[in-house]
Simulated scan of single mutants.
Amino acid sequence: MTRIDAKFAELKAANRKAFVAYVMAGDPDYETSLEVVKGLPGAGVDIIELGIPFTDPMADGLTIQLAGQRALEAGQTLEKTLAMARAFRETDDTTPIVMMGYYNPIYNRGVDRFLADAQEAGIDGLIVVDLPPEEDDELCIPAQKAGLNFIRLATPTTDDARLPKVLQNTSGFVYYVSITGITGAAEASAADVAPEVARIKAQTDLPVIVGFGIKTPEAAEAIAGVADGAVVGSAIVKLIEEGRPVPDILAHVRGLAEGAHRAQAVTP
């Protein structure tokens, strides 16, 4: 059982929805980013998504594109992202960390080396947005053999014919992308999301977490009310872009987390 599996078991026992926060590793610099990441669990975050900065983030909107650029310009690398996870694990051995990004940096490092390093650093799962199920032998299967969850994205265009393929080797949770488009591009609608989540849950026992387009505590509550939890990324990254003090960023995260957690008694 991974930390992700344990976290969802804990949340289920408490009839509580998950709040997942995304931040770009190394944005705006290593020290500030680590301070934010270390503060996330205390702000109510159940699972941390740690972005791997990459030069060509095709699934991301301008906010996260710019975050990746800032991180790269500040010297962030995959090695430093792994080091950040190790530093986090020095004081927190329970909060799950999911590395989210693109395959190129992992491929360049070498899959076997990357998986060994990720496991040693305390990484629990991977979201690699540009590896479809047809490429599962490339990273997904080796990752799961190494004890890491491989989390797949489902989208509004994932039809009933495609969905079983998407779910085939997914573990940890399913990440449902609430909008058609890139991160931060539009606002998620619980009315639109609810039937899609139900359709996915009819084919898997995994938790379904919804991300993209969630910007406020109210939206986090509404989306978590029709799913197993909500992910917020761009709205948090935007505060980092604005140069807000870390305590202010964490206070905003706390409000988002409280929104998602208010939905704990709602049955999807």
Score class of each variant (00 low, 15 high):
230 A>H: 09
185 A>K: 09
244 R>Y: 00
249 I>Y: 06
207 P>H: 07
155 T>N: 03
77 T>F: 09
191 A>C: 01
199 R>D: 01
79 E>T: 11
216 T>C: 06
208 V>M: 06
238 K>H: 10
41 P>G: 05
101 G>R: 00
131 L>D: 02
82 L>F: 13
205 D>N: 11
1 M>D: 06
246 V>I: 15
84 M>R: 01
166 V>S: 03
15 N>E: 06
187 E>H: 12
195 P>T: 14
217 P>R: 09
180 T>I: 09
182 I>C: 05
184 G>V: 14
202 A>W: 07
250 L>G: 05
239 L>H: 09
226 V>E: 14
106 I>D: 00
15 N>S: 08
239 L>V: 12
63 T>V: 14
126 L>F: 13
78 L>R: 08
106 I>A: 00
59 A>V: 12
253 V>Y: 07
130 D>I: 07
97 I>R: 02
15 N>Q: 13
220 A>I: 14
229 G>C: 09
108 N>F: 05
232 V>M: 04
151 I>E: 00
178 S>V: 06
153 L>I: 11
123 I>P: 00
20 V>S: 03
1 M>P: 07
6 A>R: 15
250 L>I: 10
148 L>F: 15
193 V>S: 11
245 P>T: 13
201 K>F: 02
253 V>D: 03
32 T>C: 07
160 D>S: 11
223 I>N: 06
86 R>D: 01
142 P>N: 11
224 A>M: 02
100 M>A: 12
23 V>L: 10
24 M>L: 10
52 I>R: 00
246 V>T: 11
117 D>I: 00
195 P>Q: 14
6 A>I: 07
122 G>M: 08
110 G>F: 08
115 L>V: 01
187 E>V: 10
172 G>K: 04
248 D>G: 04
162 R>Q: 14
17 K>I: 08
148 L>Q: 08
161 A>G: 15
112 D>P: 01
15 N>Y: 00
97 I>Y: 06
23 V>E: 03
202 A>K: 15
171 S>M: 13
254 R>K: 15
113 R>F: 10
146 A>D: 05
15 N>H: 15
116 A>F: 01
156 P>S: 06
221 E>H: 12
45 V>I: 14
74 A>L: 02
143 A>H: 02
197 V>F: 11
235 A>M: 09
156 P>A: 03
94 T>F: 03
199 R>E: 03
23 V>Y: 04
111 V>H: 05
231 V>L: 13
189 S>N: 10
157 T>V: 14
127 I>E: 01
115 L>I: 04
196 E>D: 02
83 A>C: 05
147 G>R: 01
3 R>D: 07
171 S>H: 11
119 Q>P: 00
117 D>F: 00
189 S>I: 08
57 P>I: 02
85 A>C: 14
99 M>S: 07
99 M>Y: 12
204 T>F: 06
67 A>L: 00
81 T>P: 09
137 D>A: 10
187 E>A: 15
5 D>E: 15
231 V>P: 06
227 A>N: 04
226 V>Q: 11
2 T>Q: 04
58 M>W: 11
234 S>M: 05
35 E>K: 11
116 A>L: 08
245 P>M: 03
170 T>C: 13
14 A>F: 01
123 I>A: 03
205 D>C: 00
255 G>L: 13
250 L>W: 11
91 T>A: 07
22 Y>M: 05
234 S>I: 05
86 R>W: 02
58 M>D: 08
162 R>C: 07
242 E>T: 15
205 D>G: 12
255 G>P: 04
165 K>A: 10
233 G>A: 10
